[in-house]
Write a protein that binds this DNA or RNA. Structure first.
Lengths: 188, 188
DNA sequence: CGAGGATATATCGCGCCGGAATATCTGTCA
DNA sequence: TGACAGATATTCCGGCGCGATATATCCTCG
């Protein structure tokens, strides 16, 4: 509808490729490591699965952005990846690109709220369910913040963001719940 | 990883099926209509494409949740869908389900922030880019709010949510920008 | 020593999803 | 009136996301 700048800066890095390059730069150099760290850090605003990570690592190696070396620990196969100079440049290219960053939200609770005129008596319960979800997430984020001291600046900032956003969501739900409760009370 | 409740309430409605049932209940009864309304309303927290809508409409018809009738306007093919009683029940079933609602965020700007230790001098510019994006979105939301008076309660609530969230994002970016600017100034 | 859980790697397949392609209708301005 | 832009309506395609699963090895504790 509206023409947008293509998210194609740097060297045409696919979304998953960006996470992988960044994660290797932070010292997570195996597919398994990357998956584990993503699950404990960026997962709130960027998820990734094995099905993306392993094929992407091989594609990146084909393009010369990472170099993998087989380092079996014991008898188990294990490939450790490092950034090549080209890979470092691609990462920096992406980080300094001027394109509109992709932003996408998928919130089923909001969708239910949108359609709630088909079943108004459930509105408040749905808001409470959303709030409960975010409250549980907040506990997890607090745990991460407590367990991991001495973080890098980037991860620390995004953790603060995640915490603040989650708190904001909880407040919005609670305020809307009480407002709707009042309205439906005065209507009777 | 963590066991979650399956999002499977009602009758195993797929995510796109839910939007479609809800949209038909609101009186948008052709594929084209649904796409257009989604693009102007739920798109902020739930997008949908033709590639989901048209096949899903046929699947829903096969399952007896919607009934389509061919109503060509002029010589152009056109199928108008209505909810069947079963479809209405499926919609209400989903709206009253107690499962954890799906929540997912994909924010490339945050991802860049997370990896920004690889290129710290771009941190503030990236925040400004994120802010600019949200500021443009806010203008669009305000236009929608102004042009569409007399909304249903559900859509009005989600529009308020979208506006408030976008404003919160803008503020977070701005505050973080100024905080980082101060920090880097005192470091010198 | 043996069981079970964590570590590590890899693959499969379905469905999501953006968008290009197609075709027809409507309005408008020369 | 005839050309053309733009709205309406649907189909189709390829790529990627992503959950689920298979396999094998390592570590640890009882």
């Amino acid at each position: 509808m509206t023409p947008r700048g293509d998210n194609d800066a740097g060297l045409g890095l696919s979304p998953s490729a960006r996470v992988i390059l960044g994660m290797i730069a932070l010292g997570n150099n195996t597919g398994y490591d990357i998956k584990r760290v993503v699950d404990h850090s960026t997962r709130l605003f960027w998820a990734a699965s094995y099905g993306q990570i392993y094929p992407e690592l091989r594609r990146l190696e084909d393009r010369g952005l990472v170099a993998g070396s087989s380092q079996p620990s014991g008898g188990r196969a294990r490939t450790v990846y490092e950034l090549t100079p080209m890979g470092e440049e691609a990462l920096r290219g992406w980080l300094s690109a001027q394109d509109d960053p992709q932003f996408e939200l998928r919130d089923e609770g909001m969708l239910k709220l949108f359609f709630s005129d088909s079943l108004p008596e459930r509105r408040i319960e749905n808001l409470a369910l959303m709030r409960a979800l975010h409250e549980r997430k907040l506990v997890q984020l607090d745990e991460i913040a407590r367990s991991a001291k001495e973080m890098h600046d980037g991860p620390r900032l995004t953790l603060q963001f995640g915490t603040a956003l989650t708190q904001w969501m909880i407040n919005w739900c609670r305020e809307t719940e009480t407002r709707l409760a009042k309205e439906s009370a005065t209507e009777e």
